[in-house]
Nucleic acid binder design. Structure first.
Lengths: 322, 322
DNA sequence: CTGAAAGCGCTTACAG
DNA sequence: CTGAAAGCGCTTACAG
């Protein structure tokens, strides 16, 4: 069969413990270490992760919960998580919960049963504090519960910057279309930044920010245009919302960006090469994924980790603004 | 710690072997089995998968390779695979290869090193026959290599049906826009069905079917419209192609479906609620995923499995046809 | 049908 | 720093 730690030990004339120690960075005499490494190379040894996991009481599996997978932000996020998780030898279970509580509870239960080692929540649902006790969890944009670490981006500043950009391009009747999170989340800073910026410039706010699910954007967008037909700039607080806004605007006869400028959050239309590229606030998805995976590793290993990590989003100019 | 097979054995006054046998469906005396099951229930025993895997030399991880994850067909397929894999206690590693050979070879290498148990290829790349020897592989739409099982849909019949539908709705100048697979694949039956149907009706073919990557659809679509501006019906042989075709057609001033009718393959635009829903040939994604996972299980367990499994796609009428 | 024992490939106190 | 040994939680011949 495959070559094991024992074969290496025999070949190098040491005990298996020693081989294990060089594998795990334990203290080993320098020349001994070299002999062992040489043996590993010559025998083409690769450690058996399953045995390692059994000994360490780990499964090597983490879960990532997203509301929907077919979405520019979430799908890229998930990809980056897979890449970052590879560093720890983890494989990742993708759970697309579409805001269904039972799927989320299923994951919590799996962790409890030790079927997976931990989970990353990108979904927004309210959980019982005590269900989360002692489980290795991390999340995006909001603390799952007190003291549970999470990664976010500078929602407030990035949104304010985007709005100032619209204003600098001549917009005076600026609207905000969003999808309100079910639970307290830093995503709400986007709306706050909008209100503050409008107030600062003396503009009256035009807002539609309801609690809706992915796939229900059109209703919110139609409601917005019905209420504020005179709008000349829109900040759409999510990718799907921006795409829907753009599509509806074109249908309704608005000329983009001449009469109506649009800025979205995340992603760009150019992906499929079929519509013009969106001006958007882009979150550093890759860095956020890496950070959240490292955080989860820390939690699983019982290390001290920072509770809140904020990363910088930046405005990327596309063709939906002047 | 957690309750183990040993605790159950003690509690039920039997040997651990017996407990293991009831767990794995070995032959056990009926009343003994009941005593053991009762003990498991009362002790809230759940088997440790890692130990099981170590003993069976399995990792419990399979990979699924897709060209791109943010795509209606592939993302749903991947979700269904996750669900189906759960039945075998597997977790699935999602690899988005965007037709990059090194990622695919990385997976083959992982299987060789026993880091994963098997893989499902939805990507289309040419691999060395001998690299695939003895590895548990299955695929979609084409045999990865001789005798390697795969699942497909009735591409030919479904495409022919879609074209007959266009013709029944008055189309006479029907085009085909596709993305040609790099390797031999049953997807090519779509083009064949198109050519046959055109010939049958005495229509002249209008085809653009180049080898392109996801994200490069717009070039093909523009090329098509430049060559055949008089088109009144289009069969777009993939979802992204259909979406791009629709977007470009609207931009170029075609009225859909009044002057130009479009049928796609897979997915629908309505997902984001922003554009009209597509008339499309829908593959039975869930069934295909289930079938391919069961196939992989068979291959891993060394069972005899059927080489080709074909499932029925069906035409779903949307708003892009009359 | 069933129990005792060996072993899957590692890690980790325990002595030295 | 290092070796021998126990043990992680299972499965599987081997006897009976």
């Amino acid at each position: 069969m495959a070559v094991t730690i024992k074969d290496v030990a025999n070949y190098a004339n040491v005990g298996v413990g020693t081989v294990s120690r060089v594998l795990n960075g334990g203290s080993v005499n320098k020349t001994t270490r070299e002999t062992v490494m040489k043996a590993m190379r010559e025998l083409k040894f690769t450690p058996n992760v399953t045995a390692h996991r059994l000994r360490k009481n780990r499964t090597g599996v983490i879960a990532v919960l997203v509301p929907i997978i077919n979405h520019p932000f979430f799908s890229e996020f998930v990809e980056r998580v897979e890449e970052a998780a590879d560093k720890y030898g983890w494989s990742v279970l993708i759970v697309s919960s579409q805001q269904k509580l039972d799927k989320e509870n299923g994951i919590i239960e799996k962790i409890r049963r030790k079927e997976i080692d931990g989970a990353i929540f990108v979904t927004h649902y309210k959980h019982d504090e005590k269900d989360l006790q002692g489980c290795p969890f991390v999340s995006i944009d909001r603390p799952l519960s007190k003291d549970i670490p999470y990664v976010t981006s500078n929602n407030y500043e990035a949104t304010a910057e985007a709005l100032e950009y619209l204003i600098s391009k001549g917009c005076k009747k600026i609207g905000y279309i969003g999808s309100k999170p079910i639970v307290d989340s830093e995503v709400m800073q986007r709306e706050k930044a909008y209100l503050d910026t409008m107030a600062k410039h003396g503009f009256e706010p035009r807002i539609v920010n309801d609690v809706i699910m992915h796939g229900e954007e059109r209703g919110a967008v139609d409601k917005f245009f019905a209420a504020y037909p005179d709008v000349d700039g829109i900040f759409a607080a999510g990718y799907t919302m921006a795409q829907t806004t753009y599509g509806a605007a074109i249908e309704k006869g608005y000329s983009v960006p001449d009469c109506l400028q649009i800025i979205g959050y995340d992603g760009s239309f150019e992906k499929w090469g079929n519509i013009k590229s969106l001006t958007a606030v882009e979150q550093p998805i890759s860095e956020m994924a890496k950070a959240v995976v490292d955080l989860l590793y820390g939690v699983i290993e019982g290390k001290q980790v920072t509770t809140r990590t904020s990363m910088k989003a930046k405005l990327v100019i596309g063709a939906t603004t002047k």
